[in-house]
Amino acid sequence: MENKYNLKSPAVKRLMKEAAELRDPTEHYHAQPLDDNLFEWHFSVRGPPDSDFDGGVYHGRIVLPPEYPMKPPSIILLTPNGRFEVGKKICLSISGHHPETWQPSWSIRTALIAIIGFMPTKGEGAIGSLDYTPEERRALAKKSQDFCCESCGCSMRSALLALTPNSNPSAEDDKAKELAQQINFKAESSLSRQASESRGAESEPSTVTQGDTSTSAGQEFADGPRAEQAEASPATGVDGPQTPAAPSTGRPLSPRQRRAQQHSQQGQRDGRDPASRPVFPPAPRQPQDESHAGSAVLIVVLTLALAALIFRRIYLAQEYKFDYEL
């Protein structure tokens, strides 16, 4: 394979180095390139413990671009698992669907540990994601032991080392786990931000409607302290309780808020609660038929004037021609 590729290429150097580091399988993952293609790897990962995938061993492909590690790989699962679709590129923050989140410091080892960490999470409708029931996933975890890859000839029963209670992770595994945790956190943060933005967009109209009265009250408290003091004095004759004003929001008042403010001030002067005061309907708009009628009359007058000018011009021309012939 060394004679087939340019050893000066950064991608080839990086992949050959990672292939040497991942040559020996571990208890949780293993990955190696195909014999005839350095840019296609096959991997095996063990299902995370204390989850629906516990006891399962899952096989898949990693297709790397020529620009690796500057661009992310594409990850495809080959073993039915109930979390990712089989034979389809899955959408993760470490896969080719999200090149904007990929970092060159991540490696194939990081991707393998991140896949293990992503398996118990919800699909959330992402590309290549599934949301099977826990019972179906447990059944698929048991069947995964019988899977054997036709391309690389790897059997899931012997792909990984047996689990032992005294096994200690290596320094590379610890570093990869830290990076995988950052990937998981980053993915969760993006999902929560998208959910909050969607919820905020849906609730924005109702929030503005409910906040009109409080905003107008806050502006009244900030702009009109003299009027409020005069209304609170005994000389005004107001017997009803005074409603405390809300703090000002610092935003300019809309026409709707100004109308609410005027109604509130008028209600306080009359000694009634603005909330119980009936809301007056807005002034009716002037019918547009008058403007249309005026435009039509103007057009008719201009047309008649133009016709009169043309007729006079024709008449003068005919009179001049008649005089000339005489």
Rank of each mutant, 00 (worst) to 15 (best):
S158R: 05
A139Q: 12
N166C: 01
Q145R: 15
S151A: 12
G200C: 05
S144Q: 04
S190W: 13
E202V: 01
A201Q: 09
G153K: 08
D131E: 13
G128I: 07
Q194T: 13
F185K: 10
R137E: 05
S167R: 07
S170W: 03
E188H: 04
E136V: 02
K142R: 05
Q145F: 13
Q181G: 14
C152N: 09
G153H: 09
Q145K: 15
S170D: 09
I183Y: 00
L163C: 15
K142G: 07
Q194G: 13
S167P: 02
E150P: 06
Y132M: 13
E150Q: 10
E178A: 08
N168Y: 03
Q194I: 12
K186C: 06
N166S: 03
S129F: 14
K186T: 14
C149Y: 03
L161H: 08
A180L: 07
A141Q: 00
C154F: 00
A141L: 02
S167Q: 04
C149L: 08
A187T: 03
S198I: 06
S190V: 13
Q194L: 08
S196I: 07
G153C: 07
A195I: 05
E150R: 13
E135M: 02
E188T: 00
E136K: 14
R193H: 03
L161C: 09
L160H: 05
R137I: 14
S151G: 01
Y132A: 13
I127S: 00
A180N: 11
P134L: 04
G128A: 07
C152Y: 11
D146P: 01
A159D: 04
S144R: 04
L161G: 03
L161K: 11
G200K: 08
A195G: 09
L140W: 00
K175T: 15
E197C: 04
A162Y: 02
C152F: 14
E197Y: 00
I183E: 06
E178R: 01
L191V: 03
G153S: 05
E172Y: 08
K175C: 11
L160M: 06
S198D: 12
S129H: 15
N168R: 15
S129I: 02
N166H: 02
C154I: 13
E172S: 10
A171P: 01
E150S: 12
R157V: 02
L163M: 11
R193A: 08
R157C: 00
C152G: 03
Q182V: 11
